[in-house]
């Protein structure tokens, strides 16, 4: 199977960059209300202020929930593990692939962003 068709740019997944402490999500923080968002937004969707400022989040985070996908999905080879991760310091909740384990990490488990996988996904592993 081929990789997912992400030709509809921009890529709707979190953008990851290497920071001084490891991989981080390159997102925005609202200067008015403090709302953190991983993806591009035209203004703060919470308070509507035009004060979104670039901010990096992570690499540390906590698993909000997780699952192992065991059915065929276009461009993917099951099984693979996904998690919603709340990034530290009131960072955004992101969807990431979990690497290094065949099991879904427990709710509340500590994880760490490792970077971008071959398919372009944000990846985390147990911290």
């Amino acid at each position: 199977m081929s990789a997912p068709d992400t030709s509809l740019s921009p890529d709707p997944r979190p953008q990851i960059e290497e920071g001084p402490s490891g991989a981080q999500v390159s997102g925005s923080l609202c200067g008015a209300c403090g709302y953190a968002v991983a993806l591009e937004r035209p203004r703060c969707p919470v308070c509507h202020a035009d004060r979104l400022e670039p901010r990096r989040f992570g690499p540390g985070g906590t698993v909000w929930s997780s699952t192992v996908v065991r059915i065929p999905v276009a461009g993917r080879t099951p099984p693979y593990t996904l998690a919603y991760v709340n990034l530290d310091e009131n960072g955004p909740r992101i969807l990431a692939h979990v690497i290094g384990s065949d099991a879904a990490p427990a709710v509340g488990a500590r994880v760490r962003l490792t970077g971008v996988g071959a398919d372009g996904d944000a990846e985390v592993e147990a911290a």
Binding site: S65, V69, I71, G75, R76, Y80, D121
Partner: peptide, 16 residues
Amino acid sequence: ASGMALPSIYAMSAAR
């Protein structure tokens, strides 16, 4: 884009 099918969205809810 991340490989979520609808059942896995609900699986996330169930696991939580």
